[in-house]
């Protein structure tokens, strides 16, 4: 086993374990902290994939912003859910069955695919020029439409979120 493989196994074990805890832990605040760990683990996986830029963005956006937002929401809605009782609803065995079925199905389909075990090509020297990526993102010949769509989405989400969360006067 190479070092990379060992690293990958460690990281993925962390990610999976943390993810399981997110789903299963009784205390919602702990679930949020487990989520932070899982997201960190994903950032490490990104780094293993030579996508160090996205590893950083992952930490910034998910750990820095989204997780913080979630913790805020938890604190705002605290005390309404009884932490001592079961945190899964009654239909959870069925849900588990569905998820296992999905996982099995996915792995089965993937295993039929002839490039499933392909190895990574060597990273070319210029494969990862962020300046070029930035230009491609904003140039009309590149991905401007996707970029603009994402910005519109963000704007709409922002407006919607503000409107929804705005405390109505008199309520």
């Amino acid at each position: 086993m190479s070092t990379a493989q060992i690293l990958f196994l460690i990281f993925s074990a962390v990610v999976v374990a943390a993810a399981v805890m997110v789903v299963l832990s009784r205390r919602i605040m702990r679930a949020a902290l487990w989520l932070v760990l899982a997201l960190f683990g994903v950032a490490l996986i990104f780094a293993l994939l030579d996508a160090s830029f996205f590893a950083v963005v992952q930490v910034l956006v998910y750990v820095g912003a989204i997780a913080t937002l979630l913790i805020f929401a938890i604190m705002l809605t605290r005390g309404v859910m009884d932490d001592s009782k079961a945190q899964l609803n009654r239909g959870w065995p069925f849900a588990l069955l569905v998820c296992l079925g999905l996982f099995g199905g996915l792995v089965y389909i993937l295993s039929q695919w002839n490039r499933f075990n392909s190895a990574a090509p060597a990273l070319p020297q210029d494969a990862y020029d962020l300046t070029l990526f930035g230009l491609a993102l904003t140039s009309p010949d590149g991905y401007l439409v996707a970029f603009e769509a994402a910005s519109v989405l963000l704007l709409a989400a922002m407006v919607g979120a503000i409107y929804l969360a705005l405390e109505k006067r008199g309520n």
Binding site: G91, V98, L102
Partner: peptide, 13 residues
């Protein structure tokens, strides 16, 4: 959640 579980189950099937 029940709806979604049902939907995904059908999808998997």
């Amino acid at each position: 959640q029940e709806y979604m579980a049902g939907g995904i189950a059908v999808l998997v099937l």
